[in-house]
Design a protein around this nucleic acid. Sequence first.
DNA 1: ATGGTCGTTTGACGA
Length: 260
Amino acid sequence: MRIVTWNVNSLNARLGRVERWLEAFEPDVLCLQETKLSDDAFPAMAFQSMGYETLHHGEGRWNGVAILSRVGIEDPIGGFGDDVEPDTDARIAWATCGGVRVASCYVPNGRSLDDDHYQYKLRWLDRLAADLDGQCDPGDDVVVCGDYNIAPDDRDVWNPTKLEGQTHVSQAERDRLTALEQWGLVDVFREHHDDDGLYSWWDYRGGAFHKKQGMRIDLLMTTRSVADEARLVVVDRNERKGPKDDPPSDHAPVVLELAR
DNA sequence: ATGGTCGTTTGACGA
């Protein structure tokens, strides 16, 4: 079973690439972030014809998350599953796919540490932890994946010194990630790779990809039972390449293959 | 060299 997370930075702009990628890699579950579509505009038929059921939660111009599954979609939720007032942004969707409770998350960017958006990011992560605890047990098969906009440690950024005092690497954000780990989630990519320099996102500007200047901010956080079944966890960095007339997302897909 | 590019859009703004 293959479960994948990919921030596509507009599904309209990326649909051809996503379809070709699905053909080539045949994931069972594909979690998308930043579709930038309303639910009406989501191309459900295109994916259905390839054998995928879909769940999309979007608002239009910004954000938007989706789950594509060829192993079923049960108990779908667009947004948080708690009964608190709806989030202002479309940043999370839940579904059970082939017995695994899956969340596709687009964590707020934060912009800068003195920005209100950073406080929203921290609150959002607290709400994610509470929502997870409300729906799931650490003994369940759970994958909370997506664009976390957090680099878990200094191995996950190309220049830790340069990024000091910025969002994505601050202690408060990393503490939120630690809280998820204390609940029972595992950064499954890190269980399989110790090296630094293994990124999932590279800025479009300044040739960052070719200079190997990126961050690992797209994470598959799984419960122990799922992590123990992991055969392979890889970033498909080839997908970050491409010509100007068929441009890549600034994020690459992160693939988890389970022995089931 | 202190910017640099995309995608939303047609003027900035977000990442």
